[in-house]
Design a protein around this nucleic acid. Structure first.
Lengths: 223, 223
DNA sequence: TTCTAATGATAGTAATACTATTATAAATAA
DNA sequence: TTATTTATAATAGTATTACTATCATTAGAA
């Protein structure tokens, strides 16, 4: 079974909806490949324009700047992640199992995408790990936040917090623990690959390591 | 009692040691004020040159680029933090107390610096919270890491890991837990101020909130 | 005193992050 | 069907950034 999902991304993020045209869709899709390949700092609209055989001016009609484009991509990812969580939790009643499913989702790579129309989720996941904090770790965060552009992240956080509270209603910090699960899964994955001395990975699979570390700490906190 | 501390920062980080001259010392000191005021993205060598009544060329003789200057500042901070940990732990034998002291250090602001020669530790702390991940979340991380420029961070992490292991020798992930303590204390402080819905802060003091959250989870994990 | 080395002043380049203008092509409405 | 709107490609241009290079001046060391 294979299907595509669509989300309504907050209109404040773009100038023109990239979903409304072919160039628009192509620029988002290719930006994922390019940001992954170059890193966000080296990524430019000029390079993206070249990649999609278009011009900078065209891209600027869709996004104010590359920061907004990254935000768009991340919003899509957070929506997708919330959808995935909801989907995978369907019909699972065991509360511990529900948490384990979430930790697994947060710590494992996605399979390479097969459809050419779909975003490459594997690359997207790597972008989230390495670049996502760059959208909020900026001076203008308060200004940017006013447009509710972080809502999908907050919603994901809220959803996980609910599962945490369902498991242990007495735990006092379900939201902070949610963000800690998300952020920790990112940096432990990043560190275990790039700066392994900051972690306790042994040679083997780093997703598996991160999964074990987080699951271990989550249940020690909640039990 | 008031005293200044000096650290030998890895020579690979700079072209000329800023400690070796007055302009050098001034540029590091003022860069802390400027990065704090503008955020790392808006911070430029041109603006810094203006601030210290010097020229870009002079700054470039000390640091290859602004990324290296940030790395220098963070290295200093990590060394300072390790020193502080060592200092505050002196003569404290109770193992739980030792961990509590560390958590307190990680989650609380420093006092405004009094000495005009000293770096402003309060601003430095804010820079660490908002900008530190930008030095390793880059494509070239492996290349940069080869020069051992992250050693002070790894040492700090190692030191905290030791205290963790001393408290509970059976715990399997002391290093990953160390980095999680450090990173979590940063993003919880950042979130509780800027995106509070991602946390469980109530209106009050956010350092205190972060301290409680982290202390709570640390001892649930280790006990 | 002479030499050396660091600085300041100045200039210049390539790339980035945009904005503006116009001709053309495609989609839509009358 | 034509007229109108709209998006795009092509092009040009600007201010700023991130550097590199040159050279005269100055301060300190030999």
């Amino acid at each position: 079974m294979e299907f595509q999902v669509k989300f309504d991304i907050n209109e404040k993020i773009f100038l023109r909806n990239p979903e409304s045209s072919e160039v628009g869709k192509l620029m988002v899709k290719k930006s994922i490949d390019l940001i992954y390949a170059l890193g966000f700092e080296q990524f430019t609209f000029k390079k993206l324009a070249l990649e999609i055989n278009s011009t900078e001016a065209t891209i600027y009609r869709y996004f104010e700047n590359k920061h907004r484009l990254l935000l768009y991509i991340l919003n899509w990812y957070w929506c997708y992640m919330e959808f995935l969580v909801t989907f995978k939790l369907e019909n699972v009643v065991d509360k511990k199992e529900r948490l384990k499913i979430i930790v697994h989702l947060l710590t494992h790579e996605f399979a390479e995408s097969t459809s050419q129309f779909d975003y490459n989720k594997k690359l997207l996941n790597q972008i989230v790990i390495a670049e996502s904090s760059k959208v909020y770790l900026v001076k203008e965060v308060t200004e940017i936040n006013k447009n509710e552009v972080f809502k999908p992240y907050k919603d994901l956080c809220g959803k996980i917090a609910e599962v945490i509270s369902a498991y242990n209603s007495k735990y006092k910090y379900p939201r902070s623990l949610s963000t800690t699960l998300i952020e920790t899964s990112h940096h432990q994955q990043f560190f275990s690959v790039n700066l392994p001395k900051l972690t306790d990975v042994s040679s083997k699979n780093n997703s598996e390591f991160t999964n074990q570390f987080i699951e271990d700490f989550l249940f020690k906190i909640l039990d």
